[in-house]
Amino acid sequence: MKRIFILPTTAILFILCVTSCVSIEKAIEKPNSESKIVIDTIFSTYLNEHRIISTYLPKGYTNENTYPVIYATDGQIIIDSYAKSLDSIIATKVIPEFILVGVYSNETIVPNSEFEYRNFEYIKDWADENDTLLNSRFSNHFKFFSEEAINLIEKKYSVAKSKNGRHFYGTSNGAGFGVTLGSENPDLFSNYLCFSMAGGNYGNLKWTESNFPYYYLSYGSEEPFPLIIAIKEFDEFLTQKKFKHSLNIYNGGHDRKLWKKEFLKILPEIIK
């Protein structure tokens, strides 16, 4: 599903050029006087390209503590717009301190196509079966996200390194990616916040009665009908299999502001 993004392509390219020269910072030893957003770049050997990762560190961050962490798809539209709200609910003790990591997607338009590389990275088996390069995008991004991006964060910051302290957040195609990711690698994250899921694949389910993750599903009453049908089918699948999950329907459509509202509402159930 095509999405509208806040940052223009020129801005993203500028950020990439600037941050690609930034080396990994030294470990933070003293608590932050203010929250901060750190931008890193990583060269993915799987994707054979640089990727940007933005990390929200709470005001009291220190290496002496280990923080729960949420890894989000489409980091370019997550971190900056969420920071002030996270500052507020952490300061008022609604939730404890935690770290939010936004992994950027590739919004470049595929040559001779109306779609972005992002679509092929998030949706499994979406490319023409004869297009080897595009077909490999999903599996390569899958490994980049679940291995390279997480390894970078775990080496640089004092974050949880086990399933219980790691969580996933995605919207639209990014949420669909989360459904596929959790189905095929159930020991990576304990909770998946998947809003307005588009393109999820759970045909290769590798869950057992003891290791399945918890899915928080949410969508708007005014979403496109095919998307609603797909989410309801996933909800029914989880219900039939007796996998615990939740489904919420909010008033509205495919809207970033509403996704943010849902995210902040669910956070106290995730970060305790």
Rank of each mutant, 00 (worst) to 15 (best):
I4A: 06
P8T: 12
L13E: 15
F14M: 13
V22P: 00
E25Y: 09
E29L: 14
K36C: 13
K36A: 14
V38I: 15
T45D: 13
Y46L: 00
Y46N: 13
I52R: 13
I52Y: 08
I52C: 09
T55F: 09
T55K: 10
Y56K: 13
E64H: 11
N65Q: 10
T66C: 12
T66E: 14
P68Y: 11
Y71F: 15
A72D: 00
T73M: 09
D74F: 01
G75Q: 10
D80F: 04
S81F: 09
Y82I: 10
Y82Q: 03
Y82P: 04
A83I: 10
S85Q: 11
L86V: 07
D87S: 05
S88V: 06
K93Y: 11
F98R: 13
F98D: 09
L100W: 02
V103H: 02
E107Q: 12
T108A: 14
S113E: 06
E116N: 07
Y122S: 02
K124C: 00
D125A: 02
D128K: 07
E129L: 07
N130T: 10
N130F: 07
D131A: 01
T132L: 12
T132K: 12
T132N: 04
T132Q: 10
L134W: 03
S139H: 07
N140Q: 11
H141T: 03
F142N: 04
K143C: 08
I150H: 01
N151H: 13
N151T: 15
L152I: 03
L152R: 12
E154G: 04
E154H: 07
K155S: 15
S162I: 15
G165A: 14
H167E: 03
S172V: 02
G176D: 11
G176Y: 11
G176I: 09
F177Q: 03
G178N: 02
T180A: 07
T180H: 05
L181D: 10
G182W: 05
S183T: 14
N185E: 06
N185Q: 11
N185D: 03
D187E: 15
F189R: 11
S190L: 04
N191G: 01
N191K: 14
Y192V: 00
F195V: 13
G199R: 04
G200V: 11
G200C: 11
K206E: 00
W207T: 11
S210L: 08
N211F: 01
N211M: 05
N211D: 10
P213M: 02
Y214G: 00
Y215T: 05
Y215R: 06
Y216H: 00
S218D: 01
Y219E: 04
Y219S: 03
E223H: 05
E223K: 03
P226G: 07
I228W: 00
I229S: 08
A230I: 01
I231P: 01
I231V: 15
E233K: 15
F234R: 06
F234C: 08
F234A: 10
F237C: 08
L238A: 07
T239S: 14
T239Y: 13
T239M: 10
T239H: 12
Q240A: 15
K241Y: 12
H245R: 06
S246A: 12
L247N: 00
L247H: 07
I249Y: 05
I249E: 08
Y250D: 04
N251G: 06
G252P: 02
H254V: 03
D255F: 04
K260N: 08
K260D: 01
F263N: 08
L264F: 15
L264N: 01
K265E: 14
L267E: 01
P268Y: 08
P268E: 02
